[in-house]
Design a protein around this nucleic acid. Sequence first.
DNA 1: TGCCAGGCCGGGT
DNA 2: ACCCGGCATGGC
Length: 221
Amino acid sequence: MPLQEVYRRLFEAFGPQHWWPGESPIEVVVGAILVQNTSWTNVEKAILKLREAELLDPRALVDIPLEELEEYVRSAGYFRIKARRLRNLMQFIVDRFDGSLDAMFRTPLAELRPALLSVSGVGPETADSILLYAGQLPTFVVDAYTYRIFTRHGWIEPETDYHRLQEYSQSQLPDEVQLYNEFHALLVRLGKEFCRKTNPRCAQCPLRELLPPGGPIGSDE
DNA sequence: TGCCAGGCCGGGT
DNA sequence: ACCCGGCATGGC
C-alpha cells in the first residue's frame, strides 16, 4: 500500500493535528519520557506541575532530589521509573551539551539518535519523538498505533520490528519533517478513534476502503 | 469493575 | 537472540 495515499486520506479526514500539543522543546522532551505506555491526559498533569514549579529545565531537573521529582511526575504512572529515566536524560543533556537543547539538536541526526538510545530509559520511539517533535529532525516515529494499523491492513508482517517498520515507511515517503510530524500525529488520531486494541470501529474508519477483503487482520498484538 | 494507555529495561532461558 | 514480568496512575 502506498503510504502517500494513506497520508492523503488521513489528512483529508482529520486535517492538521498541530503536534506536539503546543509545547516548548523541553516540554516535548519531558513529555516523550512521561508518555511511555501511558495516556496523554495523565502526562499533562505532571507537566503542569513541573511548569508551575519552574522545573522545565535540564539543570533544574538534575538538581532536585529524586524523591521530589517522583512526586511531580506521579500522575504519569510508573513514577519511580520515569523519574529516573527523566533524570538520566537530563543528565545526558547537561553532560554532553551543557544543558542546551539547541546545542543538542545541532548535532547531526545520524550521530544524535544513537547517543539518545544509549541513555537508559530512552528507546527508539522516545528517541524519534524527541528528534522529530522537539528537534525538528526528519525521522519517522513508530508506535503501537502505527504497528496495529499497518498489521491490521496487511501492509506489514506481524513480526516486523521497529526499525524495519521505520525503514519501510521512510523508503516510500519524502524525507520531510513536516510530513513525518503530521503523519505520526494522524496515525495516533486514527488509532484512538478507530483502531483501539479492543473495540475497533473499522466500519467508520476513514481507511476502511483500504482494508483487506476479509476485514482487519489479527486484531491483537 | 477490569482493562487499557503515544515503552523500555533487566533477568531468565 | 528471544521471551517475559515489572512498572502505576487515571479514565471509561
